[in-house]
Amino acid sequence: MPPAEILIEGLTQSCIYMTMAFGMVLVFSILGILNWTHGQLFMLGAFIVFYSTTAAGIPFPIGILLAGLVMAGIGILIKKFIIDRIKGELYIGVATLALIFALEGAASLLFTSDDRGLAIILPGVLNLGVVAISYQKMAVIIFTLIVMTAMYFVLNHTKVGLAIRAVAQQPVAASLYGISTERLSLIVMGIGCALAAMAGAIMAPLYPINPFIGRTPMIMALLAIVIGGLGSLTGAIVGGLILGFLHSVIAYYISYLSEVVLFGLIILILLVRPQGLFGASAK
């Protein structure tokens, strides 16, 4: 049994992978494409919160919302001016892949590639006897709970949520009843990108910030989606949870080979369940 601190660390990672994966699957379910540059929106979210708290003196929670809002706007622009102008899933995929380097390059130019650190906003530790958990990490966990509850509410109890689920399941019939896939695409792109940015923002005080911090969360989110079952929102959440723990626990025991073991395990899961844990089996 690894020490409790490792499990807390795993849970914190899980929260981020979940939020990222959830946004990606939401976009995928309506647009039918994976937005490969999701990790860079995470990175930009971290920079927005860094500068808004250090340079502009904006309170941290407002900074997180600001990051979400700005990147929702960027996401909508990416949809309108890049994704909409290219035909074919493969080419759209390549375009969003190219955006990884464009955004990282732009961030390096603007902010340099040096590591930056945001001071801990919520100092202190909650001691639960068996385990101590820092307030900053608790903030990540509570933030994720709030986001997931809010998303659950939006998807299941609002008209927009009903429309999103309808289009994801049966786009032609949805359009027959007047649901505009076009408008919903912009909405989910905005939500998905905002989630990525806010995940980056809430994590900013815990890790160094540089233009390349989006890569690992993006790959982990992608793996979470694959083991959860592509297209399943529940799968994205469970996949993210599993990966966060696996990543931290494996790294604790075998630091050098941890990635190799992690990917080996994922391949094993996919060999047993090729459709992922929550994916519909291909009959």
């Binding site: 008209k159 009903l162 429309a163 689920r165 309808a166 399941q169 049966q170 032609v172 019939a173 949805a174 027959l176 009843y177 007047g178 649901i179």
Partner: peptide, 21 residues
Amino acid sequence: PEGRKLFPLLTVKENLLIGAY
């Protein structure tokens, strides 16, 4: 539509509400 094209994971009530979207 042909083949009904219902929303398989939505409830009967939700399917009806989409009709009135």
